[in-house]
């Protein structure tokens, strides 16, 4: 199973927009744990690939002329 979520960064916190839920954390490790917990609560078991796409609108607009991409992540969670 594959899911596409948007990743953002505001007020010194990472935010994952997962479906209709917002998962926030101070670090990416904590965010990943939050995503794992969320997935477990919804899907119970199985292997899920989550693609996190960083929202570049979080950067000041003048940055996009230099580099319009930050990063995307591809994570695999085993819920079993």
């Amino acid at each position: 199973m594959q899911l596409d979520y948007t990743l953002s960064f505001t007020n010194n916190q990472w935010i994952c927009f997962a479906d209709t839920t917002e998962i926030t954390a101070d670090s990416l490790d904590e965010l990943d744990n939050g995503i794992a917990k969320y997935l477990k609560s919804i899907y119970k078991k199985g292997e899920i690939e989550v693609n996190l796409y960083f929202d570049f609108d979080r950067f000041p607009t003048w940055h996009s002329q230099y580099m319009p991409h930050y990063f995307n992540r591809s994570l695999t969670f085993n819920l079993n």
């Binding site: 960064f9 010194n12 990416l28 960083f54 979080r58 950067f59 000041p60 940055h63 230099y66 580099m67 991409h69 930050y70 990063f71 992540r73």
Partner: peptide, 24 residues
Amino acid sequence: CGVSASIATAGAIKAKPLIPIAVS
């Protein structure tokens, strides 16, 4: 190569965006 490299590197190592914004 300046701003583009700092954003690309920060993205690659998944640094908080505050760092490349300051460096830029």
